[in-house]
Design a protein around this nucleic acid. Structure first.
Lengths: 342, 342
DNA sequence: AGCGTGCCCGAAAAGGGTTTCGGGGACTTT
DNA sequence: AAAGTCCCCGAAACCCTTTTCGGGCACGCT
């Protein structure tokens, strides 16, 4: 007879229902369920039993409205399809999930209008704080001064240094790559990077250059900027080898470029790592796992960055965060493309 | 003197504040801001002006508690680091974002305990519905019968056929791959796939086999199951060519395997697509963009799947969804690995 | 027996917004 | 001028939970 309307339209069971069925007042029911000691064991038992039977779940909305804190956080990303925001998001989810926070996810797609729209919705829902995830390392304008909750920027820092930001350290990453190459005996280091309009490309090159300079060296040829693609890596190798300068190492602006470089070197019969060592950035699984030999790469620790952003947001919530830009230290992962595999 | 505590601890401005400052009652303020016509234009103007000035944002929590609908949905994923959940999630975010829904993101990491924990939290927050995203196409146990809101399963269907599920059609995808190969004149089709414990691997092989059978053909050799990796693709090519049976096409269980197959064929001097055609599945950008030649692949349309799941959830919300499993039709994307590029 | 003392429990307010309903003021009509 | 009508506005209830405060009841002590 299908007397119930729809699949699951049962009115939500409320504390009043529980109280009524247990024969106590709502106040008592509340106290019983929340473990307050102003209630007898016998009553508590009866109330909890009824709550269990009705599958009662306290309405967090009502609790939030009362407490003035919602226990929710907004995660405002601009790059949901990208590689960077996802691990960050995971790290944040991780850090929050441990506690009692729930996470609102919003993708603004690099659109400032959409971002403001989402921001407004989140503030309406009374999020306790916000994490803003960028898609590039280049600084971005802050959300606006009128945001009444703490904000932490991840990956892309705010242009305002007084905001809280957590970023990767591209300069240091470039330095780490070169220091590893120097330590393993390389002296002729070329550099193939991505789009020069990205600060990530320029910063990594700057770090690499600085490390070379400290050893009294310089890049072989100019830093070759191009695009963040395998095709560019392959094309760059052609140009590099045709230039006929000795090269025993290539620093690549990303793992994808490195993959192209590796493939092109293999095509040309150049042995890796014997003749030329190759280093990438990001330690990106899909590129790493298939490459021959395994690609040495600088891991930017996106997930830790997300976790750290969440931690700082927590700190900001109880006022113990001091704002500013914090850099995550990159971590070199050595594989067969720079050191012969055992 | 820093009399304010913390960076932005201003008490939230409430409707009462607006009303007071505008010299009207809360009731009138509410009506003015919500466009109800029981208020004079003059009053409305004054109220909106004050609201604007105070940056008043109505407390959605309070509205929700009253309306009995929160305007939020839970997105319960198990594979936040994976390739599948993300586009699904984007599609869903997309479909919701258009309206007034906000999305709670939770990653259960394949852990049933954690899933239940998140579920409870989401129900406490009175989500209006749930989308559950799996990490494999294999059916999964439903959340539980006691869930008082509509649920749509995406990618991994519920084992209960009476639940609402949106899945990819792997059989059809396998068929599409083979039909394309047959249409372009191939007759000797080998099949290299991933982990046999995945229904995705088996279903794609089944679809491919069926299409071959209809043409009076069969796979060259057995379907070679292995792992979802480039390395396996390379290894399989070695075995395949050593078997010394004629092969003019290889269907690969994933783009990653296909990438390995392409690389190994190139190493061995086999021309693609002239001598052998290669097809992959998933149309996964990172693998596609770098491959030589461009990889023909069957796009499973994850994003559309996510969007569809969101649409069905909407339908379920107003009772117009009829449950059951719905399959998304895959789409073949032809590139240079099966047809010579112009 | 009377008084004091705990122990449980319930009434009520709070929190922010929406909605219903009634009332008051101004304007029109006779 | 009195009566009727219409238009705005405000008081109050409601949603669900927590918390404070006061009251009632039983028991012990003198």
């Amino acid at each position: 007879m299908a007397s119930s309307v729809g699949p699951s339209r049962a009115r939500k069971v409320t504390l009043r229902d529980v109280a009524q069925l247990a024969g106590v007042s709502v106040a008592t029911a509340s106290k019983a369920l929340n473990g307050r000691d102003e209630v007898s064991e016998e009553t508590r038992r009866r109330v909890t039993e009824v709550a269990e039977r009705l599958a009662f779940t306290p309405n967090t909305l009502a609790q939030s409205i009362l407490a003035g804190r919602s226990g929710t956080v907004g995660l405002l990303t601009n790059d949901l399809d990208g590689r960077f925001s996802l691990p960050i998001l995971m790290g944040a989810e991780d850090a929050f999930g441990a506690g009692q926070m729930s996470v609102f996810l919003c993708d603004a797609r690099e659109d400032a209008i959409r971002e403001q729209h989402h921001l407004k919705a989140l503030l309406g829902r009374r999020v306790d704080g916000l994490i803003v995830v960028g898609s590039k390392t280049d600084p971005r304008p802050p959300l606006g001064s009128k945001v009444p909750v703490p904000v932490v920027y991840a990956y892309a820092p705010s242009t305002d240094p007084a905001d809280s930001s957590v970023v990767v350290d591209n300069v240091r990453a470039g330095r780490a790559a070169v220091e590893h190459l120097l330590a393993t005996g390389r002296r002729h280091v070329a550099h193939v990077s991505g789009d020069v309009s990205y600060s990530a490309a320029r910063d990594r090159a700057a770090g690499a250059g600085a490390a070379l300079a400290e050893a009294g060296l310089d890049h072989v040829g100019p830093v070759r900027y191009g695009s963040w693609s395998e095709a560019w890596g392959r094309a760059a190798v052609a140009a590099l080898l045709d230039a006929d300068e000795p090269v025993d190492a290539v620093v690549c602006g990303s793992d994808q470029i490195a993959r192209g470089v590796l493939d092109a070197l293999r095509d040309r019969g150049v042995r890796v790592p014997d003749d030329v060592a190759v280093v990438g950035f990001d330690n990106w699984e899909p590129m790493i796992s298939g490459s021959r030999p395994g690609l040495t790469s600088v891991d930017m620790r996106f997930q830790d960055m997300g976790r750290r952003a969440a931690e700082r947001l927590f700190a900001a919530l109880d006022g113990s965060d001091h704002p500013g830009v914090e850099a995550i230290e990159p971590r070199l992962v050595v594989r067969g493309s720079t050191v012969p595999e055992a």
